[in-house]
Design a protein around this nucleic acid. Structure first.
Lengths: 229, 229
DNA sequence: TTTTACAGACCGACGGTCGGTCGTCAAGAG
DNA sequence: CTCTTGACGACCGACCGTCGGTCTGTAAAA
């Protein structure tokens, strides 16, 4: 094979790209290092020059993913014109909008991520996004408490809880995906939607807000994302 | 090797016992099937006669663990003399008592379970205990709502959230364990304790109760468990 | 010339398989 | 009641393929 040399950063990202595509297609365990190097067109030695273990791929991918996501809402988070509650809602609205925009890709990824054998992949992605969002959400809660809008004695703990609420959707998400195409799909989506709606209420209450202050879903959102092709 | 024949159930439990001991000592990934069969004194073929894969061990162990735990609080859950809130608090009190009683063993298990490489083991144990507790907690919430004590529109969703709150302690738990023996240990335990206290408040709020109705920790509890030998 | 990026043959360990063996126990013969 | 037989399921252990990771060496860059 001819030897192609690239800058370390480029190569690293290229490997990450290939690995990410494979992980979202077959899952982490079922993707081998040989699969990755074949896809990228690189040798074993080349791979282990940039990554010390297969595990590193997970860390690299999830970190990149989480940072990309937070970068796309940075402007809202830093908007000084908005109060804490408004920023929180604007952030959630933007997140939903982004999800709607690449719903098909998202849905395809869900198909793999929520399979039981990919539990580790799911939890890693979740943990990475929580790690990135925690300081952001903590700041909003701190400021909202200072504004007198929220009533939260432990902002960081509250942020942690709220972010972990997402993980409690795992099982219903998995069920909804499994039910996809069957007669139960409709009911599953409805149930998921009700859950997500309640999660908004749970957030309201944790923050000391009246029910309905922080809507998690808008009508049709859940169905739009879950039925996207 | 001499051949020793046992009933399928006995042998299965014996294998589970051995595997559980090893998993809680070295973690899941670092325990090989050969380790398990060596510990149990059985052959490869014997093992695969009872389990179809190494993964099955995880499922078997976590299911057994979760069912044991729920069996030890069954009497409280079924006590007709208690209201929903009282049952919930009695259940939590019993759980704490049990944790205090075998704090040393629990603490030793924590040492392994909360290591980053054992994330999967942690999540499996968590998922299994949530699966067992979900219907139990849901029932309490349904009844408490009927009694007019709780105000929860989606009992099952609320149960799910409350149970998942436990997972949000993972990182601080891990940090506390890592800090064990160092100068930061004291501060870490204090922080963990504050968190756990707030989680009680979060549960209060989700259930529509005044802050402090459902205490998660009592004074000294966190320190007692985390410093046990 | 030294350092960095890469190639690819190689290795050991691990999860899992497979053909076969041996205990156990019930049914039928003596 | 005892003994034989035979089927079934528990169990054995050599073996296999795969996979993550290593190592020696080489070409390009600095």
């Amino acid at each position: 094979m001819p030897r192609i040399v690239k800058s370390a950063d480029d190569r690293r990202n290229q490997i990450l790209d290939g690995a990410q595509a494979l992980f979202f297609e077959r899952g982490y365990e079922r993707t081998t290092v040989n699969d990755v190097i074949a896809k990228v067109g690189i040798s074993k030695g080349g791979f282990y020059h940039h990554f010390s273990a297969k595990e590193d791929l997970l860390e690299g991918i999830t970190a990149r993913l989480a940072q990309d996501a937070v970068a796309r809402v940075r402007d809202i988070l830093d908007d000084p014109a908005l109060g804490a509650l408004e920023r929180l809602n604007a952030f959630l609205a933007r997140s939903r909008q982004m999800k709607r925009e690449d719903a098909p890709k998202l849905r395809a990824a869900f198909d793999v991520i929520f399979r039981p054998e990919n539990l580790l992949l799911y939890h890693r992605i979740n943990a990475a996004s929580i790690a990135v969002m925690r300081p952001v959400l903590t700041r909003i809660i701190v400021e909202g408490t200072a504004e007198g809008v929220f009533a939260v004695p432990e902002p960081e703990a509250a942020a942690d809880i709220i972010l972990h609420i997402g993980a409690s959707t795992h099982d219903i998400m998995a069920r909804t995906i499994t039910a996809s195409g069957t007669a139960e799909e409709d009911a599953a989506i409805d149930e998921l939607d009700r859950r997500l709606h309640f999660y908004g209420i749970a957030v309201d209450r944790i923050l000391g807000l009246p029910d309905g202050s922080v809507p998690f879903v808008e009508p049709g959102f859940t169905r739009a994302v879950m039925t996207a092709r």
